[in-house]
Design a binder for these strands. Sequence first.
DNA 1: CCAAAAAATTAAGATAGTTTAAGACCTTTC
DNA 2: GAAAGGTCTTAAACTATCTTAATTTTTTGG
Lengths: 198, 198
Amino acid sequence: MNSAHAKSLYEDSLVFSNIQKYIVLTCEEKEFLKSVLYEIEVPPKHMLLRQGQICRQLYFVSEGSIRAYNLDTDGKESTIMFGIEDWWITDMYAFTQQKSALLSLETLEDTRVVVLEFEVFDKALQHIPKLERFFRILFQNAYVREQLRALDSISLTTEERYRKFLDKYPQIVEKVTQKQIASYLGVTPEFLSSVKKK
Amino acid sequence: MNSAHAKSLYEDSLVFSNIQKYIVLTCEEKEFLKSVLYEIEVPPKHMLLRQGQICRQLYFVSEGSIRAYNLDTDGKESTIMFGIEDWWITDMYAFTQQKSALLSLETLEDTRVVVLEFEVFDKALQHIPKLERFFRILFQNAYVREQLRALDSISLTTEERYRKFLDKYPQIVEKVTQKQIASYLGVTPEFLSSVKKK
DNA sequence: CCAAAAAATTAAGATAGTTTAAGACCTTTC
DNA sequence: GAAAGGTCTTAAACTATCTTAATTTTTTGG
């Protein structure tokens, strides 16, 4: 991480309106967050996290997009999620447990992310107990989303899941290759190509 | 729900030690929770929630086990999760949004559950802000678990997922039919049977 | 703007998973 | 205690998906 590119945040940064969807921050609280958060700008194909490394940061996407994927021992990629503008993303398992990452995070284009360091995460939760509520709702929504996805993945056909994906993430479809969509759906690119033909 | 079976909780109830894994409750806070939570005892095959109903309750399993499943329009069952002793379970999507449930919840055996009503959930979070932290960690863990499961489901073979299931939930294996395990893995019981033969 | 690399498509043969159906084995239930 | 219903297994035929490999199209980097 090239900290030369780190910038501090403005009052009107997207991350504050994201947080204030669920809680209201006082001026002091915003000042505190401005003092511990920072934003970086990274080029396309930049690796924010590499599988195997300790995951020390949680990211908020201010602009651009990110892909989170796992590479198995046979070299097969599985895309776990995409992070787009106004989303939080990291390898949450590795971040919360401070264990080595199962996922790699790679930008899909020029991207700006707000960085929340693990120690800051802890400190911020103590300093602003309201943030517990914010993250409670954030994780609650994330859990619900994953549970619905699990249902889709065991009950729908590939074609149905592909349609849902197009429907739900039209912004992402523009930015990613079909190979990456296939690896998100859990099928080969060749098979996805044949599904599309219909 | 037969409220004639509702009992109030004791100080040493499992649900308090579950909550106190992550936060410390004062005596007053415990008293408050004892006044709003209650426990019910239900027989095997009892439906705690039916698909289509508004989901008004979150359950903590004190003893026994529960299966959460979805029935699609073709009559195909998909088991989303099992809830065992010391777990929280409900259709979290329907509960948090107060929408009609995608899932049904059915006991697998004689079961005792602590009931947390939706209005109480809200009230308790306001009355005991520390609970925000508790549920933040609960949902964080649930999200991580689901994310790992999503990875398994797109990257592993049925055999591998079956082995992992046996490994991870040995207590559940005793209590459920193979048909239900198959519906959790997203395959037919016939196919699971042929996988087992090896 | 060209050359090289990566992505997408197509098709053929292989494997994974489903469907249907039948028989064996359990449990409820009356 | 017999009948009925659910579960488990097996097998054959069928469908979905993968693997491999060749061809075309698109993207990337100098």
